[in-house]
Amino acid sequence: MRGERGENKAAAITARHRLRGSDAIYVAVVQRFGAVLVTLEAEQRFSAAAIVPVRIPEDAYTNAQSFVQY
């Protein structure tokens, strides 16, 4: 997410969803790569959940364990 496109995407997310600048960058990266945002920050989870999938670390760990084959 380098260059003007990424910066514009983060700025648009910041304005539209009232996220802090750094949180908007995380959300833009998660969107770009089709990933899940894993965070303990309640405000970040609440705001980002309208845009990308969000999990707390415990849920993400439990979900990841279901994919592990021993």
Rank of each mutant, 00 (worst) to 15 (best):
Arg5Cys: 03
Asp23Ile: 05
Glu7Ala: 14
Gly6Arg: 06
Ala50Ile: 00
Ile56Pro: 05
Arg20Trp: 00
Ala24Gln: 00
Ile13Asp: 00
Arg45Ser: 12
Leu19Ala: 06
Gly6Asp: 07
Gly34Tyr: 08
Phe46Asn: 11
Glu41Val: 11
Met1Thr: 05
Pro57Gln: 07
Ala10Met: 06
Ala42His: 13
His17Tyr: 15
Ser66Asp: 03
Arg32Phe: 06
Pro57Leu: 11
His17Ala: 03
Val30Tyr: 07
Ala11Pro: 00
Ala35Asn: 10
Lys9Tyr: 01
Gln69Gly: 03
Ser66Thr: 15
Gly3Phe: 09
Pro53Thr: 10
Ile56Cys: 12
Ser66Phe: 04
Asp59Ile: 02
Gly3Tyr: 07
Glu41Ala: 14
Ser22Trp: 10
Ala50Phe: 04
Glu7Lys: 09
Leu19Asp: 07
Val29Lys: 06
Phe33Lys: 03
Gly6Thr: 04
Ser22Ala: 06
Glu4Lys: 03
Glu43Leu: 10
Ala64Pro: 05
Gln31Tyr: 01
Ala28Ser: 10
Val36Glu: 12
Ile25Ala: 09
Arg2Met: 07
Ala64Arg: 11
Lys9Gln: 13
Glu58Thr: 13
Thr14Arg: 12
His17Glu: 09
Val27Thr: 09
Ile56Met: 05
Thr39Trp: 09
Asn63Glu: 15
Arg55Glu: 15
Ile13Ser: 01
Ser47Glu: 14
Met1Phe: 01
Ala35Arg: 08
Glu7Val: 14
Ser66Ala: 14
His17Leu: 06
Arg2Gly: 10
Phe46Trp: 12
Ala50Asp: 06
Leu37Val: 05
Val27Glu: 01
Glu4Phe: 09
Gly21Arg: 04
Glu4Asp: 11
Thr14Glu: 14
Val52Gln: 02
Phe46Ala: 13
Gln31Val: 06
Ala28Asn: 01
Ala12Pro: 00
Pro53Val: 05
His17Asn: 04
Phe67Arg: 12
Gly21Thr: 05
Ala35Met: 12
Leu40Ile: 11
Gln65Met: 15
Thr14Met: 07
Asn8Glu: 14
Asp59Val: 01
Ala49Cys: 04
Phe33Trp: 06
Ala12Ile: 02
Ala49Ser: 15
Asp59Arg: 09
Tyr61Val: 15
Tyr26Asn: 07
Thr14Ile: 02
Gln69Thr: 13
Gln31Pro: 00
Ile25His: 00
Ala10Trp: 01
Asn8Gln: 13
Glu43Phe: 08
Val27Asp: 00
